[in-house]
Amino acid sequence: MAEEKGMHFSVYRFNPETDAKPYMQDFYVDTKEHNCNMLLDVLLVIKNKMDETLTLRRSCREGVCGSDGMNVNAKNRLACTTHLSALTEPVVIRPLPGLPVIRDLVVDMTQFYDQYNKVKPYLQNDEPAPATERLQSPEERAKLDGLYECILCACCTTSCPSFWWNPDKYLGPAALLQSYRFIADSRDTATEERLADLTDPFSLFRCRGIMNCVDACPKELNPLEAINNIKEKMLEEV
């Protein structure tokens, strides 16, 4: 069959309005003809030329907005920064695991954003602000590297078995990384409260060090290290 020429993709499809249950659909895309280098290029070719009902999120197409996290060949990644050359066929594309599917590759991120909000992800400083900037040494600022770059794509949290088991109680790697981003900030004065909020058996301590988060992060951040740093801070404070 003519349509079977090209690279083979197997894509998760589900529209609750019309489908009783999800199914996998095969697409064959001539990646050369359509000038595709990245997985997102292929998904847009499918949507634009083959089946406009294929549903996904995308925006910046360069790995900074965090829209197009998905599960590709059993690993969570961003479609826009995933080189086709790095994938074996058939390329199996599913929505991020552990969150309810809205349609096709679009998941409901409410739970993920709620976790983010729970760690009070904003700078708190109870001293009056100076007329100019608050000073921070380059060494103090360097402690935020590897933390502030998070793009909230949810690749880490949705790869975490502890999150799958306790999505309502365990905050998950992305939110905990953000929590540490503010604990580590020399300008933030709420460290004590931030740590106190994490002392229950679930919020932080459900992390079992499985390290899926580290493997999944498309920005090469290390949520596990942030989690361990929070634990160390707790010991220091006691």
Partner: peptide, 16 residues
């Protein structure tokens, strides 16, 4: 300065 006070993680000079 407002952005800095809100928490924007600007890069820093040696004098902070």
């Amino acid at each position: 300065y407002e952005l800095e006070h809100m928490g924007l993680p600007f890069s820093r000079l040696d004098n902070g």
